[in-house]
């Protein structure tokens, strides 16, 4: 299989993720626009106008094109698993020039920015395997404004779900206008310190408005959304009814003595795009 063919497809996916936001997010922003007044409404108006402009000009809608995370689910029958990592890395370098992306990877020891968006452990690739011969990849570019507001809580299990809600609400209040609300909140509950943060980020892959299939969890999502929107933080922290567009919770079983909670906040520009690569190398970006 030609690696350049895969690279092409991945560049297309990155370009789409950076310049278009998914329809579910746009309709949630429109709904928020209809319900707000004053400064809040004005913020949403500019956001929606920006979404249109970015799509038309095929430009990254935010200058912070983020750190790229790729969620890869590879069919074990796919004949070229061995070149996927290299194809993704090459695509990131190419997309940086072509889309273009802002060079965002900086050496943590020297603060040097070598300009290609590669680096130790970056782009971040999360691997998963499935039966079949196709590969599914989702790209999640995420800016630092929202990522800096992430938080891990290793709570005492005694605080229960009420304690989980308090922790999430505190994070959102502390973040205020900084992560570019209206935000989407990904929450992980359970597992371990590293797993719960991963779950929080994974939760962001769900569409805005899509509830968890387990009723106990979807109830928690609805309660959290209501609590967050009562804070009055509003679009860009200027006050208003819409602080979050949605809350998604993903869970893992926990140790009896641990109650990890991972909060991963996404900005209003909730960018993501996916692609499928077939066993013959043909690909399609969704």
């Amino acid at each position: 299989m030609d690696i350049r063919q895969l690279e092409r497809g991945i560049v297309q996916m990155i370009a789409k993720a950076e310049s278009e936001i998914p329809p579910d997010v746009i309709s949630a922003l429109r709904k928020a626009y209809d319900s707000e007044t004053g400064a809040a409404r004005l913020q949403l108006e500019i956001m929606l106008e920006n979404v249109k402009l970015a799509k038309r000009k095929r430009c990254p809608l935010c200058q912070d094109t983020g750190i790229l995370t790729f969620f890869v689910s590879a069919g074990t029958g796919f004949p070229a698993i061995g070149i996927l990592k290299e194809a993704i890395e090459r695509a990131v370098v190419q997309a940086t020039k072509e889309v273009p992306l802002r060079p965002n990877t900086v050496d943590p020891m020297t603060s040097t920015n070598h300009g290609d968006n590669l680096g130790y452990f970056l782009p971040h690739i999360l691997w998963d395997f499935e039966e079949g011969d196709e590969v599914h990849i989702t790209a999640l570019p995420k800016g630092s404004g929202s990522e800096n507001m992430s938080a891990l809580g290793m709570l005492s299990p005694g605080v229960g779900l009420e304690g989980v809600k308090r922790f999430v609400l505190d994070c959102v209040k502390k973040a205020g206008g900084k992560p570019c609300p209206p935000i989407v909140v990904g929450v992980g509950v359970g597992g371990s310190a590293d797993l719960v943060m991963n779950l929080g980020k994974r939760a962001l892959l769900r569409r805005v408005g899509e509830r968890h299939p387990i009723v106990l969890i979807s109830t928690l999502e609805k309660q959290l959304l209501e609590m967050i929107n009562k804070t009055g933080i509003g679009p860009m922290g200027l006050g208003g009814k819409t602080t979050a567009l949605d809350v998604h919770v993903e869970v893992a079983h926990r140790h009896p003595a641990s109650l990890p909670v991972g909060v991963v906040i996404q900005c209003w520009a909730d960018r993501r795009a996916s692609m499928t690569i077939h066993k013959d190398g043909r690909w399609g970006v969704q």
Binding site: I46, M47, N50, C62, Q63, N104, M236
Partner: peptide, 29 residues
Amino acid sequence: AFPGGAGVFAAEIITRVSQVYWLEELGMP
């Protein structure tokens, strides 16, 4: 205050990039 994320909207009103300082040393952002 201007809304974060509205990058293309903001770029449209920039009529000219007149100068850049410390680009080599600090990088684009």
